[in-house]
Structure formats: structure tokens, C-alpha cells
């Protein structure tokens, strides 16, 4: 055997718990060159921007500064208003909380297809019959004064009746 001794009694089994968070630090993230502009537009004008790569014939939503497929720089002229409506590309009902606790009322998360992008968000104001792939939905924005320049400036997406 490779190891001559092992901890063989429970009383010997010991683990080291530092008593504080192992990484007692945090991170601050910028929205980035693209995100700064994307969220400014959401915050100030309730508009969702995409950026179009003519070469790949693809419109990214959320907008970015480069096309990941061909590396073309997506300049100001490539940024377009893609509207606030899309369709459900996929959805799920989440029966656990972030920390794995079960919960009665599931959160409904959707991937909303807008142009060639998939905006990941919550679904609200819906009935069971609305839970279907390809159903049209639209963004419901928070009141302007509550917006901070983040994805939650959109409260949720809701079915278009």
C-alpha cells in the first residue's frame, strides 16, 4: 500500500475550518465597455440594444463590442435598438433556492430570444398556459427612478396577450 497509516477512527478525523471565510475578500466588477453602454440605454431610455455583425449576419443581444465568431469590432454604427419583445427560447421552474433549500413557489427563469441573443431573465404575470417555448414575451421595466444600470432594471419579462 502506498500509505502506511490512515485515520481509522472517527475521533481522529479532523478537518480544518478556518472559522472565517476562506476567501475573506470580495470583487467589484465593471459592466465593461459594452455593458456600460448597454445598461445606460436600459436605464435612461428603456431600450434594449443589440450589436450587429454584418459578416456573420448575427445580432448580439445584449450588445457587445466584438463578434465572438469572427472578431469584427462592433462599432457604434453596428449598435441597434432591437425592441423589448422576444420569444421564449427555453424556460424552467426552479424549485430550490440558491442554497438548495426546497421552496413551494418556483421561480420561473426564461431564456428570451431577441434577435440572435438570449436574454436570461425572470418570467412574471403569467399563467400555466403561457409556459411554452416560442411564446412571445416583452420586457417590463422598473420605474425609471429605481433603475441602477443593471439587468434588474428590467423587472421581468411577461407574456404578450
Amino acid at each position: 500500500m502506498a500509505i502506511m497509516e490512515r485515520n481509522s477512527r472517527n475521533i481522529d478525523n479532523r478537518y480544518w475550518n478556518p472559522g472565517f471565510k476562506a476567501f475573506p475578500v470580495k470583487n467589484v466588477y465593471t459592466a465593461g465597455a459594452a455593458g456600460q453602454r448597454f445598461f445606460e440605454e436600459i436605464k435612461n431610455n428603456s431600450k434594449i440594444l443589440g450589436s450587429r455583425c454584418e459578416k456573420c449576419e448575427l445580432t448580439y443581444v445584449p450588445a457587445r463590442i466584438y463578434c465572438e465568431r469572427c472578431f469584427n469590432r462592433l462599432e457604434e454604427k453596428n449598435w441597434i435598438d432591437v425592441g423589448t419583445e422576444g420569444t421564449i427560447y427555453s424556460y424552467t421552474l426552479l424549485f430550490q433556492t440558491q442554497n438548495g433549500e426546497p421552496r413551494e413557489n418556483p421561480a420561473v427563469m426564461v431564456a428570451v430570444r431577441i434577435a440572435d441573443g438570449l436574454l436570461i431573465h425572470r418570467l412574471g404575470e403569467f399563467s400555466a398556459a403561457d409556459l411554452e417555448i416560442d411564446k412571445p414575451v416583452k420586457a417590463k421595466f422598473k420605474p425609471k427612478e429605481k433603475r441602477k444600470g443593471c439587468i434588474e432594471d428590467i423587472d421581468y419579462f411577461k407574456p404578450i396577450k
Binding site: K21, K26, N27, V28, Y29, A31, Q36, K148
Partner: peptide, 9 residues
């Protein structure tokens, strides 16, 4: 500048 903070849970 839009920022967000987070730490590992």
C-alpha cells in the same frame, strides 16, 4: 460607471 460587487458564497 456601472459596478456590481460579489463575494464567493
Amino acid at each position: 460607471i456601472f459596478l456590481t460587487e460579489d463575494s464567493l458564497d
